[in-house]
Design a binder for these strands. Structure first.
Lengths: 115, 115
DNA sequence: ATTACTGGTTACTTATTGGTTACCACTTTA
DNA sequence: TAAAGTGGTAACCAATAAGTAACCAGTAAT
């Protein structure tokens, strides 16, 4: 999120938004919830994100300590991303949000909450 | 969030983001967590939001059934906003996020997690 | 010699969000 | 008569986020 207007706010919601308040960040965290993934795998999992935006999203998440990036000196290159401890601590919230959605935004199947 | 690209996705995180994935929405929900508030009060609570953006944020939250708007036919006008049941069901997540922030993004006071 | 592979970068353009200022209705108060 | 108070709206502009297409390195396989 932009040039840190929210980062040093005294409201915790503002600060949270500074870290995960963009279109793609929660989705990337969700993708990494149970596995390490390579750049290309994340890109394939979220097919509508562009490489450029995925790159910048990953960089920001890394610099905020949410994910870790490990580069293997191979050819062709291999880079793996995974949640850090801090990122994992955010996971219950992200997962609850996905669950909330399943319970509230699926008009078709309102009674099937165990998918 | 824009023209509903995410709204009918089959990924629950995409759909959640369609409903609350903007800069201001989680903050507005947080402000309404324990009280009904008037437009001017919300505006005062989030002093960096403009009236225009607050108006559109409130409208979107209302049309997604997260908040309820009640207009009193008085002069000067009075309009009250509060969380709907659906909005209240989202609240634990928002509050957890604020709590997460307090625990992880306050480098100064790392051991004071009970503020 | 060419293509594929991977994880990007670059330059450029467009979409979306956010901000500013002025203004409105209608009544009460000064 | 004029200003204040409330919850906005309208027109216009600036900032930011996101998207597109082409390209790169360096090796292996075709």
């Amino acid at each position: 999120m932009k040039k840190d207007v929210f980062r040093y706010s005294d409201c915790p919601m503002h600060r949270s938004m500074a870290v995960i308040g963009t279109k793609w960040k929660p989705i990337v965290i969700y993708v990494l919830r149970e596995r390490t993934a390579r750049f290309g795998q994340i890109h394939a999992a979220i097919d509508s994100i562009s490489k450029k935006v995925l790159t910048s999203t990953l960089k920001e998440l890394e610099s905020d300590g949410i994910i870790e990036r490990k580069e293997y000196k191979e050819l062709p290159p291999r880079v793996e991303y995974k949640l850090s401890e801090k990122g994992k601590s955010l996971l219950p919230i992200i997962i609850q949000l996905a669950k909330w959605d399943k319970e509230h935004n699926c008009p078709e199947k309102e009674s099937l909450q165990n998918a």
